[in-house]
Nucleic acid binder design. Structure first.
Lengths: 260, 260
DNA sequence: TAGTGGTCTAGACCACTCC
DNA sequence: GAGTGGTCTAGACCACTAA
């Protein structure tokens, strides 16, 4: 133990080559811990690739793989010909994930467990101006309109309204309908036939209708998660909004050295 | 051109070795495009490593690097001994970033440009129960209390209240004060002396005080961005909240194949 | 010119899966 | 056992930076 400590101080900490944790991951962890502990401060230059090769007794490719991971995570920034430097915190780069709030902590907002989804309405309607614009179709075209309510332990927590392109000639329509259903959107079998989606979260207050459905006072705060999904031809095929009760959902994020 | 098309159909598309875009990046781009175009659908297995080596005429390490990037992005999922498979959309994994909404589109919420930050109040106070708990200090300990208002083009858009540990014996206190100031938090010189931060975004409605300061009606929706920053010893050193006008900020994200 | 990071090779060995 | 992905080596060459 003492020997290890001395080696660490000398910058010669060895990797555990018998560990299940690969060498590159150990290097990422060790360097991240040293950054987190203040050994390397924001703006400091990390040892060069060849120095790290010597310190950890690995090849340059292994060091490079570790460096790539740390650059991807935003922990460090690499500059060709100059070196690798420790980055500081940057609030503007913080990424958030929607999480369910409950007494036991936070959990993924779209996990399948303990959720019940009720279909309130399914109809085929002519697209109004707004829907036609969002789905890039002619006004008056027929669209599928769906309203759903997500319950947790009997409480309504998310109110979902969605418009889908309706084109019975396209076989993809069935896939789209399947995807945006419970089975797809909430159970992890997502995305069959869909290519990508753009999401926006806004802060809103509940309208009378939304408040009644979510069993909250009108004027209560909520998240509005608007989504547009596109097919493989880059056409918008689904547009809708989740209204999420603010007392049940939050967005969480973290910035800085991740030592998990 | 026709030759290239035939090669692509035969799965022998060559890389542009003279391009500035490295081989691994070209491979990621080509495979992502093929996924986005529907050639590979969610659940499909990608060609094996050796097949991709032959197709692109590169070594296995280059293929592996490309695969690692696509796994990191969530485009595919790799399973040892089985293969690499295309993933579908997963709303639960969507990550959002706080962005400023204006007529010109969206921009980073904490960028420095065109912002003015006014210090409304700076005081040293005894910590009440709530602050003491958040900063993990004894109730009644002295803390620094700061109130700031962020303006864009003369309009107040963010109201910031923050509590900082006050310990003049610790040299880090100066650094902490510096970090959480304008110069630090808003100008990119962030994080000197700070290790990491936990962030939470909630939907709220403006209180009377907040509404007056932000020049909005009381009851208007807003984001509340709560932050706790920790030092290198993992002690909380700053706790505060940004109240962000909902008409000025949103959170944006994307899921699915990124072909940017 | 010396040092840095960036990319890449042509293998090797291992663990795992499925037949 | 054959095929898969996961890791790693010991170099090589290149582009960039700074003295």
């Amino acid at each position: 133990m003492n020997t290890v400590r001395v080696e660490e101080l000398e910058g010669k900490s060895r990797l555990d080559r018998d560990s299940y944790e690969p060498a590159y991951a150990q290097i990422v962890r060790i360097l991240s811990e040293e950054i987190a502990s203040g050994r390397y401060r924001p703006g400091d230059q990390l040892p060069s690739e060849s120095q790290l090769c010597a310190r950890f007794d690995v090849s340059s490719m292994t060091i490079r793989r570790a460096m790539n991971i740390m650059v991807d995570r935003g922990t460090v920034i690499a500059s060709q010909g100059k070196g690798v430097f420790v980055r500081g915190l940057d609030m503007g780069e913080a990424a958030f994930k929607l999480r369910e709030r409950n007494d036991a902590g936070v959990r993924a907002a779209f996990a399948a467990a303990q959720r019940e989804v009720r279909l309130l309405q399914a109809a085929i309607l002519p697209a109004d101006d707004r829907v036609a614009r969002k789905l890039d179709i002619a006004q008056g075209s027929r669209v599928v309109y769906l309203r759903r309510l997500v319950h947790i332990a009997g409480d309504p927590v998310m109110y979902h309204r969605e418009y889908l392109r309706y084109d019975p000639r396209q076989p993809s329509v069935e896939a789209e309908l399947q995807i945006t259903s419970l089975e797809g959107l909430f159970r992890g079998q997502d995305g069959q036939g869909l290519r990508r989606g753009d999401l926006t979260v806004e802060a809103v207050v509940l309208t009378e209708e939304e408040a009644e459905i979510l069993q909250c006072p009108a004027g209560s705060p909520a998240f509005c998660l608007e989504h547009i999904f596109y097919d493989f031809e880059n056409r918008p095929v689904a547009w809708g909004r989740f209204i999420c009760r603010a007392d049940r959902y939050s967005l969480v994020g973290r910035i800085g050295a991740d030592i998990s």
